[in-house]
């Protein structure tokens, strides 16, 4: 129970998200109608992605401070799950935009920011795979990971505030560029925040499974080299 209570919590929260997310009454905002329920699935993807790439950043910094192969594997696996969450966020956003804005891609600053994040992290994996020396790969990719993170995060903070956008909450310079917190009524809030926590935990869960596999594989290579 000590080790896996949060996995049970993930299942409970996500079950709640799927049931309550489709059943609770939602406020009627503009032309959103029922698509407002996408808030419980689309927005948590970005919370999840940002959490995962931040954890990846922390492990990259740890690697530079103390070069252990484990830290490098952690950083790359968290970044991988971050890419998956980013793609899901982009796809859920595009499906939603197709119904509310009339087209899946509208050159909106948030869509551009999401696409840039995908390009950055895909480039991170190209860089990793271009090197065969394990120590050098770990060090160089950790440096790129840190550099990219500190350029990317100010960019998504600043860029959406500079331009007008159709995205909810996108009133140019006013307010949070990510989502329209002022549209969130009390009932939606009771589903939204559990959904955010549930999706973040799911991302971490997926990563820990992949990490176990990677660490086992690494162990296997070492023992086969030793024997």
């Amino acid at each position: 129970m000590r080790g896996y209570w949060w996995k049970i919590l993930t299942i409970v929260l996500l079950t709640y998200t799927f049931i309550a997310g489709f059943l609770i009454p939602v406020p009627d905002v503009g032309n959103l109608e029922q698509t407002i329920r996408n808030l419980f699935f689309h927005v948590p993807m970005w919370f999840g992605q940002l959490t995962l790439i931040t954890v990846s950043l922390v492990y990259s910094i740890l690697y530079l401070r103390k070069p252990e192969a484990r830290h490098d594997i952690y950083a790359s696996e968290f970044a991988k799950t971050g890419i998956v969450f980013g793609m899901l966020g982009l796809v859920t956003g595009m499906i939603w935009a197709n119904y509310t804005w009339g087209a899946p891609w509208n050159n909106d600053p948030k869509q551009l920011g999401a696409a840039i994040a995908l390009l950055i992290y895909l480039a991170y994996f190209i860089l990793r795979n271009s090197m065969t020396d394990i120590d050098k790969r770990a060090r160089v990719s950790a440096v790129y990971n840190i550099f990219a993170y500190f350029i990317y995060v100010p960019m998504i903070m600043v860029l959406p505030r500079m331009v007008e956008s159709l995205h909810p909450g996108g009133k140019g310079v006013e307010g949070n560029p990510g989502f329209g917190g002022q549209d969130l009524d009390a009932t939606m809030r009771t589903v939204f925040w559990p959904a955010v926590i549930g999706w973040i935990l799911l991302g971490i869960w997926i990563t820990t499974l992949r990490l176990r596999l990677q660490l086992l594989e690494e162990k296997k290579t070492y023992t086969s080299l030793a024997s």
Binding site: L112, M155, L159
Partner: peptide, 18 residues
């Protein structure tokens, strides 16, 4: 990484957008 200018473009273009 002993790579050429192509890798610089891949790494740099997303970061230079802002």
């Amino acid at each position: 990484a002993r790579q050429n200018a192509a890798l610089i473009a891949i790494l740099g273009f997303p970061l230079i957008i802002p």
